[in-house]
Design a protein around this nucleic acid. Sequence first.
DNA 1: ACCTACGGGACGCCCCGTTACT
DNA 2: AGTAACGGGGCGTCCCGTAGGT
Lengths: 171, 171, 171, 171
Amino acid sequence: LTSRAVTDEAGCAKGVLHRHFADFDTFLVDLVLDRAAALQMQTAVLRESAGTGTVADNLSTALTNLFGPVPAAIIPLIISRDELRARLRLATPGGGIAILAQASSAIAAYLAAERDLGRIADDADIDSVTLSLVGGGHLLFADLDNGPPTTAAVEKFVTAVIADVLQRRPG
Amino acid sequence: LTSRAVTDEAGCAKGVLHRHFADFDTFLVDLVLDRAAALQMQTAVLRESAGTGTVADNLSTALTNLFGPVPAAIIPLIISRDELRARLRLATPGGGIAILAQASSAIAAYLAAERDLGRIADDADIDSVTLSLVGGGHLLFADLDNGPPTTAAVEKFVTAVIADVLQRRPG
Amino acid sequence: LTSRAVTDEAGCAKGVLHRHFADFDTFLVDLVLDRAAALQMQTAVLRESAGTGTVADNLSTALTNLFGPVPAAIIPLIISRDELRARLRLATPGGGIAILAQASSAIAAYLAAERDLGRIADDADIDSVTLSLVGGGHLLFADLDNGPPTTAAVEKFVTAVIADVLQRRPG
Amino acid sequence: LTSRAVTDEAGCAKGVLHRHFADFDTFLVDLVLDRAAALQMQTAVLRESAGTGTVADNLSTALTNLFGPVPAAIIPLIISRDELRARLRLATPGGGIAILAQASSAIAAYLAAERDLGRIADDADIDSVTLSLVGGGHLLFADLDNGPPTTAAVEKFVTAVIADVLQRRPG
DNA sequence: ACCTACGGGACGCCCCGTTACT
DNA sequence: AGTAACGGGGCGTCCCGTAGGT
């Protein structure tokens, strides 16, 4: 990923990038934050889905969106470029790094909402379930060379992860 | 990570690297495979721990070893360098990429062994549990900027993940 | 002849060369073709001199121009750099390699013109005379270490070569 | 042409080259002088052929030998490597450079011998004929990419060059 | 004495950041 | 403001000359 590749793709000259951004890393930070803002909309959809449909479906849909093509392309950047990650940490005061931390907090919030609604056990370890979902989801979608997983695979994984914390309806 | 950084760190001349490896990517491939071989020893330890101690302890120790400082430094390399990943895929005939796939298969094998020993439920979805453990473990340890997680944090996470599949002793 | 030597001599940065030419060999090809185009003008002068002055003078002047300092510096390049020679062969569709083949065809054309004008014997072996002139001229001028030959030396050589094919005025 | 290529071809290690020669250019000088000494034998054959066979045949054979595969491979080296040429000039006190100057003096000596024997005109410009033969011969054989010329082509060229200086038998 | 390994200068190339020019 | 060219630091690689190991 070079600055020239970016400007060529954008169909503009190289100078315009440096007129709007101090340097290339600054551009990347802004790019990631911009995509992160777009992701925020999808986290809102997840949050509002609490109580509707099934928990497994809601989470599967959320993972598919949160690890869609755009985040899947951005996450390796964050993982590998030290300076980008450092600047993102500074730019996201809430702690953690954009995208991944964002996905985690959204899923944790959703699980908490479902717990309050009674569909998740009161004593569920939400942080650990979230870590499983985000970590496992990341691996499922991060295999760039093999393309995204099937919907069934995601559903199967999510169902297994939340099996222990799903509140069974009293019979 | 540049060739000069490597030779400077090793305290040798640039030519040394070029004499022992056809090119820099070949060096990286060999480096990763070498560390992967070192990891194989630890996966053997995990496999043989089946039936001893507690499942949670065994898995926590395994995650701590599998995601130690060395793998944590190597994984970003594999994620970000496309050619390295491609060559590793060719070099590891078993399918998958070194390190992460290795950790997954080791944990899955361990869980299967424990299931055969009766400490993991017969109907446990081992693949999903493995995905949770490796994915979540990766996230726990991959936060390079904050150092490794505490032992307690790892134990807590592992305990939560396997809570559903642990075979309760008959009362 | 290195890329840095070129840019240093030109008083510009290394990047400039790389911006205008795909690679260094492409630069050399373009350089040779550019000088070859400049030579074409002098071959035109030779061709139009047919019938004027003396044949020996015309050929001596032509050799002096065709093997001037610039071609004398370029010919070793073509001789020694295999890839440059290969690319030049592709770039000059008429067959042969730039500069030397160019000089040969120009001189052969001139001799043919003089033959048609009656100043060269009808049965002259133009190809052989051309080979003598170009080959001998090359050796005369190619001795880079001793500088160019004197005009008298060139005249003497040319006169000897064409002595056999000059048409004697009918007595 | 690198020192490694030489030692690999010779089937020995790199150090042996520097044990016998001060540096790579010294090795090349010795190599050229060695081949030049081998050529001297063929120039002797040419000299002794004076008065036998035909002049054209003798010269054609000489050119074919003097510009055989080995000299054809060495001449570009001499032309392109400035330091090698400079050292050769110092090493051959007779003036001129090895190989090419050697060929010239051999042919000139042969022509002089034939002149003394009456087969070459007394007033022949031997130096110019020699220059034509060596220069034209060089071009004929130097086209490395197309292989050596046919015997007939060499004969044709030689015949044309010496046509003017051959002493016709009185009829 | 030969051979392997090393040391390091240089080469072609890449790519970022800047600067005149339109 | 947008463009196109420049300047130069750095990368991976090549290859010469040398120095220990056998």
